[in-house]
């Protein structure tokens, strides 16, 4: 299998480990454990970041590579 997780250096302080393949941990459509929450979180962060960038251009933030 290809290198599974990509790390995303967003600031020099912290890395965010993510791969869309994490969403393959899926029991069934109606199981309470649902990794769609990872997508919802990432999307909220991305949109939040856009908001931040408008406020402050000094934010160090690399866009998430898909």
């Amino acid at each position: 299998m290809a290198k599974p997780s990509r790390y995303l250096p967003m600031t020099k302080d912290a890395v965010f480990v993510f791969s869309e393949e994490l969403l393959t941990y899926k029991f069934s459509n109606d199981h309470p454990f649902n990794q769609k929450r990872l997508l919802l979180t990432l999307d909220l962060l991305k949109k939040r970041v856009l908001l931040l960038m408008r406020i402050s251009s000094s934010q160090e933030w690399l866009p998430i590579r898909n």
Binding site: P4, S5, Y7, P9, K12, D13, A14, V15, F16, V17, F18, S19, E21, L22, T24, Y25, K26, Q35, L38, T41
Partner: peptide, 28 residues
């Protein structure tokens, strides 16, 4: 799928312990 998320956490550990990053997060 299960081994992948474990790998993600180990990757986070390596980043922190080798000093490449101060903190690391694997929400998976």
């Amino acid at each position: 799928a299960s081994a992948l998320l474990v790998g993600g956490t180990l990757q986070a550990v390596d980043y922190v312990m080798t000093g490449k990053s101060q903190h690391a997060l694997n929400l998976g």
